[in-house]
Design a binder for these strands. Structure first.
Length: 275
DNA sequence: AAGAGATCCAACCGCTTCCAC
DNA sequence: GGTGGAAGCGGTTGGATCTCT
């Protein structure tokens, strides 16, 4: 009889596109066990993939908070601006584009933006536009200082894009929430959202004391009761315009041991409820 | 309608960095 | 400080789809 380890060694790692069944297995495993050692994930999840492939699939496709679809003009401008300063640092760029993966940005650059830049250079049109020269709508979108610096951490939230959670939070659950924002719904008793929070926060103690609710149908609010930090999942393109710079401050996700690209905002409760 | 070329994008590969021992 | 394994990252590939002729 062969040992289990030798059998595992003989397992050929599957390559190529992921099937819906494989996606479900990986998603179920991470929801139930959280993120851990990737090399162990395929074995324990019953997948014939290597850990690296599982990690990539999770990061680029399955993890919550990813938004899919075409890049907005605003996102395009961010990429162009960041590319001027960072070069091909796709993962760093993705930190400024919540819901976008480094791979997605990289593909978009190679398939579209790169040519656009090259064409503009050929026609002597300065590109990308300098941040201070960009259209005035951005300058008037709730940034009193009117800083022209390219997406520093202090102004990176002026206009956040839409973030979709379709895979993790059903619309029915959205509608259960009080749209006035006056009352938050306890995280207990809402299974899929529990899973979402567990995954997104890496299963850390940060989960404790969290509650969430809708704020005027615009945002899903995550509230940390102990230190007054709020993690807003922006559902409306221009929501940030409702906040003044004094209401919003940016925290590094690393401060909370999180690996994803969300931004954390420290907002006054009264301000939130006045939306 | 068909086929050739272009485009897009998910996934792989290999190198680097990080970290525990 | 050295080593090995895991994770992170950027470049590249290959197949599916689209567009043009």
């Amino acid at each position: 009889m062969r040992s289990k380890s030798s059998e595992n060694a003989k397992l050929k790692h599957k390559k190529g596109l992921w099937s819906p069944d494989e996606d479900q297995k990986l998603r179920d495993y991470i929801v139930n066990h959280g993120l851990g050692c990737w090399s162990a994930v395929p074995i324990q999840a019953g997948l014939q993939r290597n850990g690296k492939s599982c990690r990539l699939r999770w990061i680029n496709y399955l993890r919550p908070g990813l938004k899919r679809g075409i890049f907005t003009r605003h996102e395009e401008e961010i990429i162009l601006t960041l590319h001027c300063t960072l070069g091909n640092k796709w993962s760093q760029m993705s930190r400024y584009l919540p819901g976008r993966t480094d791979n997605e940005i990289k593909n978009y650059w190679h398939s579209y933006l790169k040519k656009k830049v090259e064409n503009s250079e050929n026609t002597k049109i300065p590109f990308p536009l300098n941040y201070a020269q960009r259209d005035s709508s951005l300058e008037s979108s709730g940034n009193p200082g009117g800083s022209s610096a390219p997406y520093s951490e202090s102004d990176g939230c002026r206009k956040l894009p839409k973030i979709m959670f379709a895979d993790w939070l059903s619309l029915d659950q959205f509608h259960e929430f009080d749209a006035s924002g006056e009352s938050s719904v306890s995280r207990n008793g809402c299974r899929s959202s529990d899973s979402q929070e567990t995954v997104m926060n890496g299963g850390k103690e940060l989960n404790e004391g969290l509650s969430y609710g809708l704020v005027d149908d615009l945002a899903l609010k995550y509230e940390h009761q102990e230190n007054g930090l709020y993690d807003l999942i922006i559902c409306e393109d221009d929501l940030c315009e409702n906040f003044s710079s004094s209401d919003v401050s940016l925290y590094s996700c690393d401060d909370f041991g999180q690996s994803d690209t969300r931004f954390l905002y420290n907002l006054g409760e009264a301000r939130l409820r006045s939306l």
